[in-house]
C-alpha cells in the first residue's frame, strides 16, 4: 500500500514540478530551488515542445499503470472491511460497504493464525540470514577472476536454474537428512538463488581491485578484506538482495507445506493458501462433494491484507538502495 503506489503516485506531481522548474529556471532566481538540484537545473536543456508533450503523456501512462496496480490492492482492502453480502453481490470496489471490523477480530483471534504468523517471521529471518551469508560468500569467490575452476563453479550454479530433481527426489533428500519439520528444510534448499548470485557477483566484479590490493598490502587477509572493505562498500546490493530474499521467503508456501507435518509449524502463507484456494477447489465439485468448503470472502480479504502488510512496509526503507543496487549489478563494463 505504501511502497509502489507511493512512487508511482507521486510521479505525476514530480513531473509537473520539474516541468514547472524547467520553465522557471531561466528567469527566476536560483535561490528558491533545492540547493542540491541547482547544478542539475542549470544544465537542463531547454525543453522542446515535443519533449514536454512526451513527459505529459508519460505521466498519464504511468498514472494509469499506478491505478491498475493499486486497484486490486485497494479492492481487497475495501473488501476486508465490508460485509459479506456486498462482496458476494460484487458491489464493493474501492470503498467498504456495510462496514465491519468483526472479521478482523475474528481472524486475529485465531491462535493458529498468529502461530503461523510467528513461524513465517522466524522462517523468513532465519532463511534470509542463511541465504545472504551463503550467497555473498559464493558470489564474492566467483567474482575473483584468478579463481581456479571458476567457470565450473558458475556452471554448477547455473545448471540448477534449468534443471532440478523435482518434488519427490527433493522430498526424499530432505527426509533423508532429517530436516523435515525444521526450519532448515525451508532455509537450506533455497539458500542460493542463482539470479541473485549472479547479480551480486557482477557487483563485486565492478568494485575497483585497487581497494582490495591496498588492503592486502596493509596486511589484511581475505576474510577481513571481505568483512571490512568489500561489504561496507556493498550496502546497496546487500540491501537489495536482502529484500529479494525476504520477500521470496515471506511469500513462499510450498516448502513449508511440503516439509512440515504439523500445522503448528506451517507458515502463514500455507494458512492463507488453504483458505483462499479451497474456495476455488469447491468448483471441482462432484469429487469434493464430501468436503464442501465455504470460507467467507471477507475472511479471505482480511487474511490477505494481514499477510501482505509487513512485507509491504519493508519496501520504503530499502527502496533507495533498491534501484541503484539492481542496476549497479546489472551493468558491467
Amino acid at each position: 500500500m505504501v511502497s509502489e503506489p507511493a512512487v508511482t503516485e507521486s510521479s505525476p506531481a514530480r513531473v509537473a514540478r520539474q516541468l514547472d522548474r524547467s520553465k522557471a529556471a531561466p528567469r527566476g532566481p536560483a535561490g528558491d530551488q533545492v540547493p542540491g538540484r541547482r547544478r542539475g537545473t542549470r544544465r537542463w536543456p531547454p525543453p522542446t515542445r515535443a519533449y514536454q508533450a512526451f513527459r505529459v503523456i508519460n505521466a498519464i501512462i504511468l498514472s494509469l499503470v499506478a491505478v491498475a496496480v493499486l486497484f486490486p490492492f485497494l479492492n481487497v482492502l475495501a473488501q476486508s472491511f465490508s460485509s459479506e453480502r456486498y462482496i458476494n453481490a460484487g458491489q464493493v470496489s474501492l470503498w467498504p460497504r456495510g462496514l465491519n471490523v468483526t472479521t478482523y477480530e475474528h481472524v486475529m483471534s485465531d491462535p493458529l493464525f498468529w502461530n503461523n504468523y510467528r513461524n513465517t517471521v522466524f522462517y523468513t529471518v532465519t532463511a534470509t540470514v542463511v541465504a545472504m551469508a551463503v550467497t555473498t560468500c559464493y558470489a564474492y569467490v566467483l567474482s575473483k577472476p584468478h579463481l581456479r575452476g571458476r567457470k565450473v563453479l558458475i556452471g554448477i550454479a547455473v545448471f540448477t536454474m534449468f534443471f532440478n530433481g523435482g518434488i519427490i527426489p527433493n522430498y526424499v533428500l530432505v527426509s533423508f537428512l532429517h530436516m523435515r519439520d525444521t526450519v532448515w528444510a525451508i532455509a537450506l534448499p533455497n539458500a542460493i538463488n542463482v539470479f541473485n548470485l549472479l547479480v551480486m557477483k557482477s557487483f563485486f566484479e565492478n568494485m575497483p581491485p585497487e581497494l582490495e590490493e591496498a588492503a592486502a598490502v596493509d596486511g589484511m587477509d581475505t576474510y577481513r578484506i571481505l568483512w571490512r572493505i568489500v561489504l561496507p562498500l556493498s550496502k546497496a546490493v546487500i540491501a537489495t538482495m536482502t529484500l529479494f530474499y525476504a520477500v521470496m521467503f515471506w511469500n513462499s508456501w510450498f516448502a513449508a507445506f511440503l516439509y512440515m507435518d504439523n500445522q503448528g509449524l506451517f507458515s502463514v502463507t500455507v494458512y492463507l493458501r488453504n483458505i483462499v484456494d479451497s474456495v476455488t477447489s469447491v468448483s471441482n465439485g462432484q469429487l469434493a462433494a464430501g468436503t464442501q468448503v465455504q470460507i467467507a470472502a471477507n475472511i479471505q480479504a482480511v487474511t490477505v491484507v494481514l499477510v501482505a502488510i509487513p512485507i509491504l512496509f519493508i519496501y520504503p526503507f530499502i527502496q533507495r538502495y533498491f534501484v541503484s543496487g539492481v542496476t549497479l549489478g546489472a551493468v558491467k563494463g
Binding site: I167, F257, L258, Y271, D277, S278, S281
Partner: peptide, 11 residues
C-alpha cells in the same frame, strides 16, 4: 492443508 492434499500425499 486441504488446498494441496494430493500433492503432499504423492510426495
Amino acid at each position: 492443508p486441504f488446498a494441496d492434499y494430493n500433492t503432499k500425499i504423492a510426495a
